[in-house]
Design a protein around this nucleic acid. Structure first.
Lengths: 252, 252
DNA sequence: AAGTGGTCTAGACCACTTA
DNA sequence: AAGTGGTCTAGACCACTTA
């Protein structure tokens, strides 16, 4: 140090840029769309015009508009320019939470218990579900998730051993099958099915419900590239459980 | 060779570039992650190294890595570089479809009927739900959606007139409230709640079910900036209905 | 023919982080 | 001190689309 301490302490003469330039432009345009000043169909100024207005290069506004297009807020076409899109119902999105996280979010102690685990040849129904060929083996796991002492969710899962050979030696006692799989196999696609059903006998017994009580059933199948990785059926007591999600269309 | 061979895809000798360069780089990296060649924790080559390997400028690979980071596949940190992230359960996402689209996807003729519509001061429960101040007015609409002759979904909705004054004169006869709102108000956030319940009296009557039959209840609240736009409760016969979604983490 | 977006370059300076 | 990403510039050429 050469006596520069005073200078160091005296920073922020002109406010430091808390936001980058393209974040500011993004925010401005987003505001215009969200407030309705630019309704669906409105023409967004061209990249060149925006660049002039903000006194920046075209690349900077291009980055912003590309991001808005990816988020589905605007449509971009050559010669035409960018227009504000009507919002689509399909863009309403719901997150499916990790069960452990769900329970912890409720401030309850989480635990799980493996009720059954078997390694065996796939039967016909399973091959149909997973899209397997006749000889392929599967791991079948049944797992009960707890919030405190209370059963929270029944998990019935099939794992395709051809895609996840490491599953052969895994007991899932330390980590339940869901998180374990996420750590071992990346997935490229998933399909969900959600229904309200009356509890069947198995679900009723494990979840301590009367048979026929409404339960929320989430089925999820996951693929890696073109191969089915796993199929899972999660059964939640319907009265007590709800899947929640908060969603915002754009992240800055 | 330190993985550079795996990174580089074959160069197309003559053919016109059907893919842009950054799309090709994105695809290559995505492949490496999806196939497990680059497991979670693996260090992605630095921007400078990738740029050299692909013989392109740093901006081009920066674009790719930024996109991968936004999609949640990698984490980027200065000095450290980029590393492959473990996949998160939270990234499993479910689309909620427009009811009209849901019905049409089943190849059934869609129609809807307005059962009730009223403009009135909000009551206490409604103000709590929507976060309104005492004097604010709401439009309350009850709408039944049909697939052919069969009731498909009961919609019970509140609309905040302060945010959507145009709703005062709208009958929703030509277009049901959901799509109408999407065309009139952009939303910035939504919150969903899904549960399996026994049908209450109103739902049972309109959906032609016995009281207590399992139904799937989807509640959605939507905001524009900080103001609540609408709250809707959708009730589906649980046995016949399922929400479906297919999801892929990255779009090129 | 002209306007617009799509993509890419070859640099630049900076901020952050570890060593 | 050095490596890495974050951001931005000032251009360039091209593809597509309308007129």
């Amino acid at each position: 140090m050469h006596g520069a301490g005073a200078i160091m302490a005296d920073t922020t003469p002109d406010a430091a840029p808390v936001q980058s330039l393209h974040q500011r432009i993004l925010g401005d345009i987003e505001q215009n769309i969200m407030t309705g000043r630019w309704p669906p169909g409105h023409k967004v100024p061209s990249e060149q015009l925006l660049a002039e207005e903000y006194g920046c290069s075209r690349m900077t506004v291009n980055k912003v508009l590309t991001q808005l297009a990816r988020a589905g807020l605007v449509q971009r076409r050559r010669k035409i320019g960018s227009v504000v899109l009507p919002q689509k119902a399909q863009s309403a999105i719901l997150e499916i939470y990790d069960i452990r996280e769900e329970v912890k979010a409720l401030d309850r102690p989480y635990s799980h218990r493996i009720l059954q685990r078997s390694l065996r040849s796939s039967d016909k129904a399973e091959r149909e579900t997973l899209g397997l060929s006749p000889r392929q083996k599967v791991v079948s796991v049944t797992c009960l998730h707890f919030a405190g002492e209370a059963p929270f969710c029944l998990e019935e899962r099939l794992i395709n051993l051809a895609v996840v050979p490491e599953a052969e030696d895994e007991t899932f006692v330390d980590m339940s099958p869901g998180p374990w799989l996420l750590g071992h196999v990346p997935w490229s696609a998933a399909e969900h099915r959600i229904a309200a059903l009356g509890a069947n006998e198995v679900a009723a017994r494990h979840l301590h419900l009367a048979k026929g009580t409404p339960v929320l059933v989430v089925e999820r199948q996951t693929w890696r590239l073109d191969q089915s990785v796993t199929h899972v059926r999660l059964t939640y007591p319907g009265e007590s459980h709800a899947l929640m999600a908060r969603f915002t269309p754009l992240q800055g």
